[in-house]
């Protein structure tokens, strides 16, 4: 725990700076609001009305996020394996290659089915 405690100090310094500067600027800056200034920006035309919470998100991003999670888990398994690699020997190598193969098959499937195409 004593290894992580100094980070709390840094969090405090950074948070004090960030919150303080946002607060200070809201005190220091001028306040001359009008209706047009508070509108959303859209190149000088009437802004497109947005549903609350941003509305729908294209499915592409969902697919990207799912693939990301699978590969992130793969990376998390790779790290301890890499750190202890010299102790694991041939068994560790074969096990990890098998695991990588199992992840690669669905990756190729997604690739071939066009899951990795963007426009």
């Amino acid at each position: 725990m004593e290894l992580y405690a100094p980070m709390i100090g840094l969090i405090v310094v950074a948070a004090v700076f960030a919150v303080g500067s946002v607060f200070a600027s809201s005190m220091l800056g001028p306040k001359r609001f009008n209706r047009v200034r508070l509108d959303s920006y859209e190149c000088g035309i009437e802004p497109t009305p947005q549903p609350v919470g941003g509305g729908r998100i294209p499915i592409k991003y969902y697919l990207t996020a799912m693939t990301f999670i699978i590969f992130d888990i793969e990376i998390i398994f790779l790290y301890p394996w890499a750190v202890r690699f010299d102790h694991l020997g041939l068994f560790g190598f074969v096990a990890m290659v098998t695991f990588l193969f199992l992840i690669t098959v669905p990756f190729i499937y997604e690739w071939r089915r066009g899951g990795l195409e963007w426009d």
Binding site: V13, A18, L38, D39
Partner: peptide, 30 residues
Amino acid sequence: LMLKEDIIPKAADKIVYVLAPIVAVVPAFL
């Protein structure tokens, strides 16, 4: 920039809108 007008658009989600720059900057320092 510190002395400029601080605008929160009418359509914005106020709390998250103010929080977002802080969330971006604190991890960067860490």
